[in-house]
Simulated assay, not measured.
Amino acid sequence: MLRTLSLLALVCALLFNSGTASAQSNYTTTDFFVPNGTLQLQVRKVVETTYSSRRKLPLLLVHGGTGATTSFDLDTDDTSFAKSLALGGFTVYMMNIRGWERSTAPAYNLTDTALVAGSCIEAASDIDAVVNYLLQGNPKGKINLFGWAAGGHWAAYYTTLHNDKVANLIVLNSLYGVKAPWMFNESFADPTDSTKFNSSIPAYRQSNEQAVINIWKTGITDADTTIKADSAIIKAFAKSAVSFNEEHLLKTPGGFRKESFYMANGRKYWDAKDITVPTLIIRGDRDFWSRPVDAEAFYNELVSVPNKKKVTIANGGHFVFLDTQGNGRRKLLIAINNFVKKGL
């Protein structure tokens, strides 16, 4: 009996310690800029410092249609995806592609209807500048690379060019070059030719705070119970997204929309067969941007990788990394940790 009570006390102590470890964790956040020619690319580094003796793996996060700090380091209700990853033993870096948040942009000719502002070529150049900066003094070093939505497109394209610098590639809710129905086909297409992108769509998107909230509503279904459109998280997200200029507008280069339109209609800007590093493909089954066929085709065409895995997160939406009330973010973190650290 005494032995049973002692064992019970030990279990309770362990549960208490594991439960309070996260609450007592401390983080160091560092903001800096990395040059790429005349551009300055905004980077944020997040490190968990309570368990400083842990071996920390470098992980670079690349955003989608909203900037990196808004998406991955939201400072409300314990929603920072970056801190969750840091607690799991990563040194987390998040970067903004040119024109997002505080990253500068070139002087685009916005009257040019053929312009792809913030193309995958430009994005890959920006990623390479940041990766080279992070790997300074470590010529054989590699980075774990995570891309969400358009960021998955950019990260995968970058990897096809620089497999030697990537340890593992992780792609979340991203398109692949498969011709299949897409919810944005009609809104992005030229009214006179459905096979072409509507050139009248501005090269720079400008959205106010309410429009950002409406983006969330696009991806929330009646069946969703974990993230509501009027929640504090979404309001904080929208407020952060429009906080980087005096006009209080989310201003983003629109090239990713043009490339995404063509990808969703079968064009390939890169080929999965050219990726030679371990690759993890994750999709929330309620994502409004990617489609099941994207994950399937991407996975099947990864013929040159030593390890690959495809994960579908049940009830996971476009912003699954901010799902703190359900199990979405937890499942996402487990998938990343198991793949990068254990190859599972």
Rank of each mutant, 00 (worst) to 15 (best):
P58M: 14
L60I: 12
L61E: 01
G65C: 11
G67A: 15
T69F: 00
T70I: 04
S71K: 00
S71C: 06
D75F: 04
D77E: 11
D77V: 10
D78T: 12
K83A: 02
S84K: 02
L85T: 01
A86C: 12
G88C: 08
I97R: 13
W100A: 14
E101Q: 04
S103P: 04
S103R: 00
P106Y: 08
Y108E: 05
T111Y: 09
T111V: 05
A117P: 02
G118Q: 05
E122V: 13
E122P: 05
A123S: 10
A123E: 06
S125C: 15
Q136D: 14
G137K: 12
K140I: 08
N144R: 09
F146Y: 14
A149F: 11
A149V: 09
G152R: 11
H153V: 15
W154I: 13
A156F: 09
T159H: 09
T159P: 15
D164E: 15
N168W: 11
L169F: 10
L169Q: 05
I170R: 05
S174W: 10
V178H: 05
K179G: 07
A180F: 03
P181W: 06
P181R: 03
W182G: 01
F184L: 11
A189C: 08
D190H: 07
P191S: 08
T192Q: 09
S194D: 10
T195M: 14
T195I: 12
K196Y: 11
N198Y: 07
N198F: 06
N198T: 09
